[in-house]
Design a protein around this nucleic acid. Sequence first.
DNA 1: ATACCATTACAAATATTTTTAAAACGAATT
DNA 2: AATTCGTTTTAAAAATATTTGTAATGGTAT
Lengths: 116, 116
Amino acid sequence: MNLPEEVEESLRQRGGMDAVRSAIPERQDLEAEARVFQALSEPIRLQIVHALSVCDLCPCVMKEIADLSDSRLSYHLNILEKAGLIGSIPQKRWRIYSLTALGRAFVETWKTEGWR
Amino acid sequence: MNLPEEVEESLRQRGGMDAVRSAIPERQDLEAEARVFQALSEPIRLQIVHALSVCDLCPCVMKEIADLSDSRLSYHLNILEKAGLIGSIPQKRWRIYSLTALGRAFVETWKTEGWR
DNA sequence: ATACCATTACAAATATTTTTAAAACGAATT
DNA sequence: AATTCGTTTTAAAAATATTTGTAATGGTAT
């Protein structure tokens, strides 16, 4: 392979292609990582996560706040739940959603790091 | 609105719906946040970011490592660049990609926090 | 000119999101 | 114990968006 000297140089210093290869996680781990980011890749779902960072909520409240149809909200809640960012328990007629430890970690991190 | 006592109670304690509303970032900020996560939502792009965390690289190296066609790689590089996670400069015949501060922050964070 | 490295264009293939309608389910009412 | 009401989920098709593959294009060095 043919590549610029600068790259060749620093690549060698850090252990070559093998070093790069071993810095890349396993396929399965990459997919798990991607799934979490995918869940956070929609403004609507970020709204939900931010809202839940204040207080556990039932869909009816989120619906009001985010101005969504029931089924649309439910669809997005489901995606967040499958990704392990939120959890829920039934409570009488309602269902109460809350952040998981993972979900909370995300909110904290981006609040403190201000990624952007 | 009608909601379970528990939620009503803790919601009131934290400042009610208004507190929730003000915890949700502006539309524009949500979109920017979402764009970053969206960029990280594909295993291929995570591979690229991980690779670049070792060393600045030209597409020809990444292509080799990730086993991608030129155009496919280019497509994904472009998405990462637009999201502000990577940057690039032309170098002779090549182009050299590197992580931005934002990109680096992500790699660091998930290496140390081990989100999953 | 030609070869090399990479990007762009555009249509096809996939995947995600939205909408609409129907169903599930617990609680209250008859 | 059936019916109805309120809350949420599910199903399925339609609308959108993303990703891929193929071919064409753009620069730069030889």
